[in-house]
Amino acid sequence: MEYNDILKEANIEALEAMKLPKKQDYFEIVIDFKKLPKPDFSVSENIRLKEFAPILKGLELCKNKPCLYFFEITNTSINTKEIIKTYQYLNVENKAALRKSINFDSKYLYVGKSQKNIQHRMKVHFGYKNTTENGLQLLHWAKPLLTEIMLHVYCFDETLGFLLPLYEKKFDNQLKPLIGYL
């Protein structure tokens, strides 16, 4: 079999997968920073996640499914330059990358994807997970600036996980979030 034939076959399979009627779930979660304490790593993860548990529960629908998510800044009077300045001074090694070109008019903070464990990604993004994975680390810097944000989540059928990079790039190009590497 020729290499080009393998590629053609893969393309046909991808197109067939996209033709099938698939349902994606969409939901929004308002996250109130006043209710979330800064993580205390001297206690167990169960205790540390107590106030964050309702958010994780809201993500149960997407457990083990591919997801696209993005954070929207709901306070329209927020100074996005102040957000970037504060984030730049966050002194942790595992924070998400800043964009090379920042659109300060954007009301979106970040666009991301998760193939199977969005709950884990949210723990990382909010700073509750002691890990080397990159994430926003929101509770380590955003609490004084943001009172709440909206988490938007699209949850897809398992067979469409291969499309996540495409969806992420499209949303990133359209929403132009403040933080992220795409």
Rank of each mutant, 00 (worst) to 15 (best):
Glu2Ile: 00
Tyr3His: 08
Asp5Leu: 14
Asp5Asn: 10
Ile6Arg: 14
Ile6Asn: 13
Leu7Glu: 15
Lys8His: 10
Glu9Ser: 15
Ala14Leu: 12
Leu15Phe: 05
Leu15Ala: 09
Glu16Arg: 15
Glu16Ser: 14
Ala17Thr: 12
Lys19Cys: 09
Leu20Val: 07
Lys22Cys: 08
Phe27Tyr: 09
Glu28Met: 09
Glu28Thr: 14
Ile29Lys: 03
Ile31Gln: 07
Ile31Val: 11
Phe33Pro: 11
Phe33Gln: 11
Lys35Cys: 13
Leu36Asn: 11
Leu36His: 07
Pro37Leu: 14
Lys38Gln: 14
Pro39Gly: 07
Pro39Ala: 10
Asp40Asn: 05
Asp40Phe: 03
Phe41Pro: 06
Ser44Gln: 07
Asn46Ala: 12
Arg48Glu: 06
Phe52Asp: 04
Ala53Glu: 09
Pro54Arg: 00
Pro54Trp: 01
Ile55Arg: 02
Lys57Asn: 06
Lys57Asp: 05
Lys57Ala: 05
Gly58Asn: 13
Leu59Met: 03
Leu59Pro: 00
Leu59Val: 00
Leu59Trp: 00
Glu60Gly: 04
Glu60Thr: 06
Cys62Gly: 06
Asn64Phe: 09
Asn64Pro: 05
Pro66Ile: 00
Pro66Ser: 03
Cys67Arg: 04
Cys67Asn: 07
Phe70Asp: 12
Phe71Ile: 09
Glu72Tyr: 01
Ile73Glu: 06
Thr74Leu: 02
Thr74Gly: 00
Thr74Lys: 04
Thr74Cys: 02
Asn75Glu: 15
Thr76Gly: 12
Thr80Ser: 02
Thr80Arg: 00
Glu82His: 08
Ile83Arg: 05
Lys85Asn: 15
Thr86Phe: 05
Thr86His: 00
Tyr89Gln: 14
Leu90Pro: 11
Asn91Lys: 10
Asn91Ala: 06
Glu93Asn: 14
Glu93Met: 13
Glu93Ala: 14
Asn94Cys: 06
Asn94Met: 05
Asn94Arg: 04
Ala97Pro: 08
Ala97Trp: 08
Ser101Val: 15
Tyr110Pro: 05
Tyr110Val: 08
Val111Cys: 07
Gln115Ala: 12
Lys116Pro: 07
Asn117Val: 03
Ile118Cys: 00
Gln119His: 04
Met122Ser: 01
Met122Gln: 06
Lys123His: 02
Lys123Glu: 04
Val124Ser: 01
His125Phe: 03
His125Met: 09
Phe126Glu: 09
Gly127Asn: 08
Tyr128Ala: 14
Thr131Met: 00
Thr131Lys: 01
Gly135Met: 08
Gly135Val: 10
Gln137Lys: 15
Leu139Asn: 14
Leu139Lys: 10
His140Phe: 08
Lys143Asn: 06
Lys143Gln: 08
Pro144Gly: 07
Pro144Cys: 06
Pro144Asp: 04
Leu146Ser: 06
Glu148Gly: 02
Ile149Thr: 02
Met150Tyr: 08
Tyr154His: 09
Cys155Arg: 03
Asp157Asn: 04
Asp157Thr: 01
Thr159Tyr: 10
Leu160Met: 07
Gly161Leu: 09
Pro165His: 06
Tyr167Pro: 03
Glu168Gly: 00
Lys169Asn: 12
Lys169Glu: 11
Phe171Ile: 07
Phe171Leu: 13
Asp172His: 05
Asn173Arg: 09
Gln174Arg: 11
Gln174His: 13
Lys176His: 12
Pro177Ala: 03
Pro177Ile: 01
Tyr181Ala: 15
Leu182Trp: 13
